[in-house]
Design a protein around this nucleic acid. Sequence first.
DNA 1: TCCGTATGTAAGGAATTGCTTACACACTAA
DNA 2: TTAGTGTGTAAGCAATTCCTTACATACGGA
Lengths: 113, 113
Amino acid sequence: MPATDELSRVFSALADPTRRDILTRLSHGPISVGELAAPYPISRPAVSQHLGVLESAGLVERTVDAQWRQCSICEEGLDDASAWIAERKAEWNERFDLLEERIREKRRQGEAR
Amino acid sequence: MPATDELSRVFSALADPTRRDILTRLSHGPISVGELAAPYPISRPAVSQHLGVLESAGLVERTVDAQWRQCSICEEGLDDASAWIAERKAEWNERFDLLEERIREKRRQGEAR
DNA sequence: TCCGTATGTAAGGAATTGCTTACACACTAA
DNA sequence: TTAGTGTGTAAGCAATTCCTTACATACGGA
């Protein structure tokens, strides 16, 4: 998946446990790349690359502070993904409600016989 | 991304425009693989493989009907992904509310001076 | 039985991903 | 200036993804 469009980039970024964990940890406040990388069994460059993915998906921001980078979440980064899922769920529920309605309808017709 | 865990498989499945489009079209009701594949510029096996990805992510179901497969959505397939995003958004909003609170607090202290 | 239709699976290739190590850069402090 | 710290980038490699074409399978009908 070349992840050319915005939504694909976001979902693709979320499709990795380490990156999801990074987002969860950043929920509690901004931290530096070093602190962020510490608990993971992978190298620091690998974490830096994960941050690059999150950044280009619009989920994370790195602000330069001397030789440190403070990483923080982009509040609105999940909005599109969230909206897409919500739309699908709404349609699906609608559909299943309709289905149930039809089943009820049938049952009523059966009872009427 | 080897996509070993459930959530990764779901997000990974959503990280492709064709697969998202398939899900959207299936929202309007089950259709066969052939109908599903028709509008796309890719081969039918490619669509079949996309369906495999969606299926093993628990988003789509294929039921055998003679030599046809009726594809339909799995209603609860998006629940985990939806919940994960909702949690993050909740934490983020909480955090930003806190931040705003602090800014207001500071402003009040400034005014008091 | 033989053929056409609907679909999945196998094999293979180009592009992408996720990791590594090595290096480069920017800044701080001695 | 020199050394040390924090971080990004480059290069390279194995695994994965997404596509293709070719083939296999299963069913319905003449």
